[in-house]
Amino acid sequence: MRKGWLRDYILKRLLYSLIIAWGILTVTFILVRVGPSSPADKYLANIAARGQDPSQVIAAIEARYGLDKPVLQQYGEYIFNLLRGNWGWSLSTSMPVIELIKHHWIYSFQLILLSSLFAAIIGILIGIYSAVKQYTKADYAFTFLSFIGISIPNFWLGVMLILVFSVKLGLFKTYYDTTLPLFSLANLKALTLPVITLGTGMLAAYVRYTRSAMLDNLRKPFVTTARAKGLPEHIVIGKHVFRNALLPLVTIIMFDLGSIVFGGAYLTEIVFGIPGLGQVSFNAIFANDYPVVVAITLIGTLVVLLVNLVTDIAYTYLDPRIRYE
């Protein structure tokens, strides 16, 4: 009886997500294309040095990449190509955008994945502990620390970690070493500081969310029932209370993902020189490489939308009372 409405709901949401993604694609495209600067700008110095006429060369370059056509036509062609699976050509790196993304996505992925795991596991455990021990010294200490954690600017935290652990103590390289094989201990070690940088804010936020979600449920009658049944405390807390606290928690955590992917991860990659998609799109913005900017924005948006959808579906299993129309 559940399957029918759920499938309809998923289809509806997918369609909705696509529309939002298209809206964001359009806004990004317009922003990038109406800007005063041109992808050809970076050749200007060269051109001047060689004594050529800049306007002619720029016109030639723009013609080559189709930048001289009306913006609307460029937009139409871009969408048309996208629908055929063609993500365009990166102007600044001279390779297909899809190749560029294929080459760099894993660096962002590993950073975000490891940071999320680190933050979620530790944050949720501390949050549970803090709630169970409400108003004790430990609870106050964790609450205070979590305040600092959410307040600390993560790019500054990254710089401080580099200052202390790399510059002063020499435990880590000051830069992320891209030559390391992905699945190696050395790579894990190289990711330590970036993961702490990106994970600390998340961790602190998870402590706060978990604590308050647990407190909302700890005094509910069904918890007393669970204790009255003679269940040991770890089942009462870990199963009965936590399963209920998980509902708001999942929503908030997933909701945060967008700002983490586009804010925190972006800055962390720049601080540590990790060649992920954040770094790539950062460089692309400064190089006016609009196909890359648009493509990465689109991918990021799609990931966030997809995660939101998966969360909503997971929710129907976590909370049997939920039914979406």
């Binding site: 509910k220 009658p221 069904f222 007393t224 029932t225 669970a226 204790r227 009255a228 049944k229 003679g230 269940l231 199963k239 009965h240 399963r243 209920n244 509902l247 976590l318 909370d319 049997p320 009372r321």
Partner: peptide, 20 residues
């Protein structure tokens, strides 16, 4: 608890865990 002496709470409508 539960084995020798069982207790049914006053708040019967919310005494069961909603997600289990």
């Amino acid at each position: 608890r539960g084995k020798e002496i069982a207790l049914i709470l006053q708040e019967a409508q919310s005494a069961l865990n909603p997600v289990l």
